[in-house]
């Protein structure tokens, strides 16, 4: 299926149609970014809002309700005891196959999981993809089903960070936080949840 189906350049297309397609693709892409923010700021409510009610997820051995995964299984679950200090999801390569009110969306991510190990801090890298079925329901685009594909991974012991190499006082830097104490909420008036 061509990703440009419906927008062939040699066929006249109404301006309204073009705008509707661009707008849908923009809103779908924003869902991906909001879902990344929700994980990285440990914001369960925001994560839930990225899905429609009844949505499902296939994620690292879990298959079932996306809401159940987020609330009870994932690393942002309030019940999680995983020694995670930080998450970071960098999204790219968004390809959207749009069919009216439904879309098949592939996106790439480079994710970091920072965790405390017995022998010191560990940075685990995961390169993967999200295969999302999204739908426009009740006036918004959101995920109906997400499959997370793990393409590669590597773990390294924490190494000397930039600020230490160049002699900056880390305590004076604006550091990201895995929760509601992140500068996102203190530096700028961004609403959580």
């Amino acid at each position: 299926m061509s990703i440009n189906e419906g927008t062939r350049l040699d066929e006249p297309v109404g301006e309204h149609e073009v705008l509707a397609e661009l707008l849908a693709k923009q809103q779908i892409t924003e869902v991906l970014y909001q879902r990344a923010r929700a994980a990285d700021r440990r914001d369960v409510d925001l994560a839930l809002r990225c899905y429609h009610p009844g949505a499902t997820e296939d994620h690292e051995g879990f298959t079932g309700s996306a809401a159940d995964f987020i609330r009870n299984v994932s690393m942002i679950s309030p019940d999680s005891t995983a020694p995670v200090q930080g998450l970071w999801h960098f999204i790219s390569n968004v390809l959207i196959d749009l069919h009216g009110d439904q879309a098949e969306v592939e996106s790439y991510h480079i994710a970091l999981v920072e965790r405390r190990g017995d022998d010191g801090d560990v940075q685990s890298w995961i390169g993967g993809r999200y295969l999302d079925t999204m739908a426009h329901l009740d006036g918004r685009w959101a995920i109906m089903h997400r499959t997370v594909v793990f393409d590669w991974s590597r773990s390294d012991p924490a190494s000397t960070p930039y600020w230490e190499l160049v002699g900056l006082d880390e305590s004076k830097l604006l550091r990201g936080r895995f929760g509601d104490d992140d500068p996102l909420y203190t530096q700028t008036p961004v609403t959580r949840g």
Binding site: D40, W88, L112, Q123, T160, L174, G176, D182, Q187, T188
Partner: peptide, 29 residues
């Protein structure tokens, strides 16, 4: 790996950064 929080303003037809905060999430070397 980090983030920018920008307040942007459109002035004389062009978007500009009106306030930037730079956040450091992680680093390695």
């Amino acid at each position: 790996g980090g983030r920018y929080f920008d307040v942007c303003e459109k002035q004389t037809g062009k978007w500009l950064i009106a306030e930037r905060s730079v956040i450091y999430d992680w680093s390695r070397s």
